[in-house]
Write a protein that binds this DNA or RNA. Structure first.
Lengths: 70, 70
DNA sequence: TTCCAATGTCAAGCGTGCTTGTCAACTGGG
DNA sequence: CCCAGTTGACAAGCACGCTTGACATTGGAA
């Protein structure tokens, strides 16, 4: 699942470490999310939405083949 | 983290099993989500939002003590 | 009363989300 | 040139999301 984290972070001039600190997660977690190595938990996705002032749906995009699935 | 799943499901007259099938997850998963035993994955949360026609933020509510944390 | 759908819950197992720690590579500033 | 900051990536370890399978309880229809 791709996401907009890197774009939004760099737009704000934040390092991965700074964003991690703001979110309450490690630098590696931010790096992994941006790299698409895994999806965040729901709570972390909500915190990200809150942080960037965007709905979760605009931050994370379900692949189209997720008809009713993951 | 509390959610609106049970309300929305029963409003639509669906069983837990029927909802699970529509979402592509097991009956026990729906039951556990409604019971608050754990939070769904982000992909499942997005599928739920799509299914009920609501943004994820209206289905799942971050506790207020989640300032920047989970 | 009998039966079945629906729900609640438990357990074992697997994959993944996130952690800390570590190492390598690149960059710009002194 | 040297360094510090930033990023990318890997590993081990723990907790959680979701699975299948199983069993108990409840409520309503026949």
């Amino acid at each position: 699942m791709d996401n907009e984290i890197r774009r939004l972070r760099t737009e704000r001039g934040l390092s991965q470490a700074a964003l991690g600190e703001a979110l309450g997660v490690s630098r590696q977690t931010v790096n992994s999310l941006e790299a698409g190595r895994y999806d965040p938990s729901l709570p972390l996705a909500l915190v990200l939405g809150r942080f960037f002032g965007l709905p979760v749906e605009e931050l994370f995009h379900l692949p189209d083949d997720a008809f009713g699935r993951r």
